[in-house]
């Protein structure tokens, strides 16, 4: 929510271009979270001593590590596997939960900054190559900006207007002849688009990294790569029989399905986490926009819970996949 209105964007937005590479708000948040985790690890590392009476920070660090060790050990029931899986699973859990909860901090999603402009040489290229139909599709995408005045009415009206205007523009390009009425409509729609451009020229400074599909895909990819790594680590090349089994036509087909399911897991991981966290963000923004101070509080509580559950689900599924990958196909 900005000073001018409600701002919801399904994808992370660039706030700065570093030599043509866009630094999005979710990347910035992710970097801050990483910095926080690393700082905590450094401070905890200094506080850790071999003692029978650990102090508060060491207690906290030990509690986290012990709980997550127990969590992984509960699934694997194997000390060796627990030792190997633990760093990845614990890091998943800590990284995701802190990112999820970071989105609930005051200032995240409310501090607005101007959208970064693409470097000029790229901008000029894109301006010349812009396809009107693509522009229409972009307008239909879920990027919504609602000015403060009469928000509920203008949400639909302005989008409809924008789409209509762009449709007209597309039609315009294809059909050069225009009537006076259409010209007037085009002029109005141009005005509306300019207003939209003005209000959508801002974006949030911070966006939870887990509310960005690129992050969740990255986490999913790491989880699946780790699954394959652990499969090879524990079963060597016997792990491949899971995918390439020529003992019978049915098993061959099952192997193909297994192979496909490995890729499907990335999508499943990515969209589950992204969907839950992004939906939570949207819910909070809309509730805060529509109501007063007290009403969003239960939703905040709900989001705290959802943030924890999603981190737990991601970690749990990862450890289950790791464990399944390390069991021989015959054992199944």
């Amino acid at each position: 929510m900005s000073a001018t209105g409600l701002h919801i964007s399904i994808s992370a937005e660039p706030i700065y271009y570093l030599g043509g590479f866009p630094i999005t708000n979710s990347m910035l948040t992710s970097l801050i979270v990483t910095g926080f985790i690393v700082a905590f690890a450094v401070v905890a590392n200094r506080a850790i001593k071999v003692t029978n009476k650990p102090q508060s920070l060491q207690n906290f660090a030990e509690w986290i590590v012990e709980s997550l060790l127990g969590f992984v050990g509960g699934v694997t029931n194997d000390t060796n596997k627990t030792k190997v899986f633990f760093p990845v699973i614990a890091s998943f859990f800590i990284f995701i939960i802190i990112n999820n909860w970071f989105g609930l901090l005051p200032g995240v999603g409310t501090i607005m900054v101007p959208l970064a402009d693409q470097p000029e040489h790229e901008t000029s290229v894109t301006q010349h190559q812009v396809d009107p139909e693509e522009k229409l599709n972009e307008a239909a995408d879920l990027e919504i900006t609602i000015p403060d005045a009469n928000p509920t009415d203008q949400l639909t009206v302005q989008n409809e207007e924008a789409i209509t205007a762009l449709t007209t523009q597309v039609t315009d390009n294809n059909q050069p002849k225009t009537t006076a009425k259409e010209e007037e409509r085009i002029s109005d729609s141009h005005q509306a688009t300019k207003e939209d451009q003005h209000s959508s020229s801002e974006t949030t400074l911070f966006r939870p990294a887990t509310a960005d599909l690129n992050t969740t895909i990255a986490l999913g990819i790491i989880s699946i790569i780790a699954t394959q790594f652990f499969g090879f680590h524990f079963l060597n090349f016997g792990y491949l029989t899971k995918f390439f089994n020529f003992s019978s036509p049915i098993m061959f087909f099952v192997g193909i399905l297994e192979l496909v399911s490995e890729f499907a897991k990335i999508i499943s991981f990515a969209f589950r986490l992204f969907g839950n966290i992004f939906a939570g963000e949207v819910l909070l923004v809309v509730i805060m926009y529509l109501t007063k101070v007290v009403v969003p509080v239960p939703f905040y509580g709900l989001e705290v819970f959802v943030g924890f559950i999603q981190a737990l689900v991601f970690a749990m599924l990862s450890v289950v996949f790791f464990n399944m990958a390390t069991q021989s196909h015959e054992a199944h």
Partner: peptide, 21 residues
């Protein structure tokens, strides 16, 4: 961006492994 997040997570994991776990 995916690559950036993979590297970012790897840093987190490495730091946590050497400094905490």
């Amino acid at each position: 961006q995916i690559l950036f997040q993979i590297i970012n997570f790897s840093i987190v994991m490495g730091a946590l492994w050497y400094l905490l776990y």
